[in-house]
Design a protein around this nucleic acid. Structure first.
Lengths: 195, 195
DNA sequence: TGTTGAATTCATCTACTGTTGAAGTCAACA
DNA sequence: TGTTGACTTCAACAGTAGATGAATTCAACA
């Protein structure tokens, strides 16, 4: 088990490649992002990207690692009970999308899912299992999964219009205003009457 | 065996190319759609596509002509007044997306807008001017444009989750159920309190 | 009928893509 | 110090993309 030879580096360049990839995938989408472009942005040889990530899809998958952990975030939101859960969801959502560090990843995820069926499947799988399933299980309401998927529709729509299509005045509205407008909707989807 | 030159008694090949392009853009997105693929589907030489539409972007722009005319649809929805406008919007929206003829175009539009900044600009321009502006002008409420862009966020989110990401159970829910769940949201965005 | 110009095809050009295998470089260990 | 293996680069392959210009076919009109 004794391995000799040069030790794995500090992963410095690897991180640089990932950062460049996230930025590129978010800005250009999957197809228009090129390995060569990522390598150029990371000031690295294109072959090095393959050395680390194998293929372009591997790079995409590595770059798409969530900037937060649903298994800890979801309980924090659901935990305090149904009162005010709508507001907590919208606040958390806006927090993730407004933080520059995570926004690039999230934009890339949504862009990729919209244009690439394989990425759509990834996002669908993730949302269904890690988010919708978890939240629905913690809620004591009828038709829980339908309710949570309704919430997902409003959240996805917010991300699209505010951060990707950038449709004003919603795109430049203050976060507090967005929370005030959307929280009642989310609250009703989760705990109110559905018809 | 294939005779070269103009084919005898052809139907409207230009329309065939457009139909193939809509289907391809909707299914594959802008970047993964190839002129050669569209030409093959339309049983036509790739150069003919350039002959008619100049460039790939020209083809995309031509294929993205709306399957309905906002200047007639919007008044039909806004006309009867604020009562029940939420329900009318959701019903009309679902109608457009559930009709097979227009769905391909709409899917292609949204996919393109998500992945291609230029398409996003087109959709933003269209939504802002032809829809949001028109509806906001007809409504007698404060912060009309903010209200309409909130509606847009919920409608875009519905299209994404139901028709592109296909997240269940919303993706397979009956239209009546979707209308019942979303109409109150839209109604509140347009005529209710915003905070 | 002869002419004209649009419809259609062919063969190519250029550019760029993801990917690969071999080779060079260098830090860490025996 | 020599060996090792990860890090890094170089050069090239094979494939495909959008685009172009010339050549061919054909319908319509004077």
């Amino acid at each position: 088990m004794v391995r000799s030879g040069r030790r794995a580096g500090t992963a410095d360049t690897r991180a640089a490649i990932l950062a460049a990839a996230r930025s590129a995938f978010g800005e250009l989408g999957y197809d228009r992002t090129t390995i060569r472009g990522v390598a150029r942005a990371a000031e690295v040889d294109p072959a090095l990207v393959h050395h680390y990530f194998g293929t372009k899809e591997g790079l995409f998958a590595a770059a798409m690692e969530l900037p937060f952990d649903p298994s800890t975030v979801v309980p924090m939101i659901v935990g305090p009970g149904p009162d005010g859960i709508g507001q907590r969801i919208v606040v958390a959502f806006l927090g993730a999308w407004d933080a520059p560090a995570s926004r690039a990843t999230l934009v890339a995820m949504l862009r990729g899912a919209a244009s690439h069926e394989q990425s759509a499947a990834m996002l669908r799988e993730f949302l269904t299992r890690a988010v919708i399933g978890r939240v629905a299980a913690a809620l004591q309401v009828d038709r829980a999964e339908l309710r949570v998927s309704l919430v997902a529709s409003q959240m996805v729509g917010l991300a699209m219009t505010r951060y990707i299509l950038r449709i004003d005045p919603l795109a430049s509205a203050a976060p507090e205003l967005v929370v005030a407008a959307l929280a009642p909707t989310v609250q009703r989807y989760l705990t109110g009457p559905l018809d």
